[in-house]
Write a protein that binds this DNA or RNA. Structure first.
Length: 355
DNA sequence: CCTAGGGCGGATGTTACTTCA
DNA sequence: TTTGAAGTAACATCCGCCCTA
């Protein structure tokens, strides 16, 4: 038995289909859809908040976004399209990954934005420094707004104090650390657009005093790690689905056996007024009527609407079939959600257990 | 105080895909 | 229609940095 789980639009965006094999763990089959282009701009909203309410194992705080600084002029970098071109020609802070050049380098820096990203993307040049003088007084000191990492001595500000005085000609690639302001702004931007078009990338790079390549890399890593976390959450959820379905299946098998035994021991049960059960195709609930349908009622009821007290004897069994429980089976409950997969709700949105 | 181990995150290289001339 | 270049996303991986036991 294999259940094809449609994971809803979000998973479709991710271009994969998860196949849940009952009792066999979870297999993830990837399908890199050919129709991926054109949907990239629409997959923003599947960005998830991996907060503590999402998954207990996920340490990523969502409150990080609240650290977005009140920086004047730091709006999101994609104003109406008419402004984008203007932004490209707008003021730009000096390139953080090169020594502050005397004024003659302006032309070269403009080249850096458009095509020069590759030029400056060598490991040597990745030694970034983020003066970030634009940001409200964070800059160099230990007055880091982030209270969390006391030992860090100022998170992103580390990079600010580091790179400018480090060797730029060294062969080892330097690890820059984006400042909290930069990270927060990138996060905010990522919530708006999980992918960037070139204009957005350039605008964001300008505003954050980063190279476009850095912005691009940040978004790539962010997508990758978001997807990784999402995959972990998905797997966890599917494991639980599998467990639930296995338990349901076991219970139904047991119940079927009991009913069959009941049928053989007490044949007069078949002479009772029959109750026909039918599965509503739309809601997957069992409906009953009094139409005479001998011989099939027992089997139908055993598989579709298990009585709440299977061993309660004939009376209880008949009562159960006459007044069927409209609680959907766990299977239906699992997949009756319109999305089919509670991506936004996370594992805490457990399907109702059958017990 | 020192250190090993692990996690995080920025960066790089590769591959596959799409678009366009 | 075919083809090659360019651009980009996805992915795997590297590795510097920081935290913690």
């Amino acid at each position: 038995m294999e259940l094809g789980l449609s994971l809803g639009e979000a998973m479709a965006d991710a271009g994969r289909e998860l196949v849940l094999g009952l009792g066999m763990g979870v297999g993830v089959r990837r399908e890199e859809g050919a129709a991926e282009t054109g949907r990239r701009d629409h997959e923003v909203r599947r960005e998830l908040e991996f907060g503590s309410n999402r998954c207990g194992s996920s340490p990523e705080p969502t409150v990080r976004l609240t650290l977005l600084p009140m920086v004047p002029g730091l709006g999101l970098p994609w104003p109406p399209p008419s402004e984008s071109r203007h932004l490209e020609a707008s003021t730009r802070g000096f390139d953080v990954n090169r020594p502050p050049s005397s004024g003659g380098g302006c032309a070269a820096e403009e080249q850096d934005d458009a095509a020069g990203a590759a030029v400056s993307s060598s490991p040597n040049n990745s030694a970034g420094s983020f003066p970030m003088d634009d940001f409200s007084g964070q800059g160099h000191g230990g007055t880091d707004a982030a209270p969390g990492t006391g030992g860090g001595g100022g998170g992103g500000d580390r990079s600010c104090s580091r790179a400018s005085d480090e060797d730029d000609g060294g062969s080892a690639r330097k690890k820059l650390r984006l400042s909290k302001e930069q990270s927060a702004f990138l996060e905010e931007s990522f919530k708006e657009h999980s992918t960037l078009n070139p204009k957005q990338k350039l605008a964001l790079a300008k505003q954050l005093n980063l190279r476009p390549r850095q912005v691009e890399v940040w978004f790539q890593n962010r997508r990758a790690r978001t997807k990784l976390k999402q995959t972990e959450v998905d797997c966890e959820y599917l494991k639980r689905c599998c467990e639930t379905l296995t338990e349901e299946n076991r219970r139904l098998q047991k119940e079927l056996a009991e009913l069959r035994a009941l049928k053989t021991v007490q044949p007069f049960y078949m002479h009772l007024p029959a109750t026909t059960l039918s599965m509503c195709p739309s809601c997957e609930r069992v409906a009953s009527n009094s139409a005479p349908a001998p011989a099939s009622a027992a089997a139908t009821s055993s598989t579709a609407a298990p009585p709440t007290a299977p061993s309660g004897g004939i009376a209880s069994a008949v009562a159960a079939t006459a007044a069927p429980d409209h609680r959907p089976s766990s299977f239906a409950a699992l997949f009756s959600s319109p999305r089919g997969f509670p991506l936004s709700a996370g594992p805490q949105a457990q399907p109702p257990t059958s017990s």
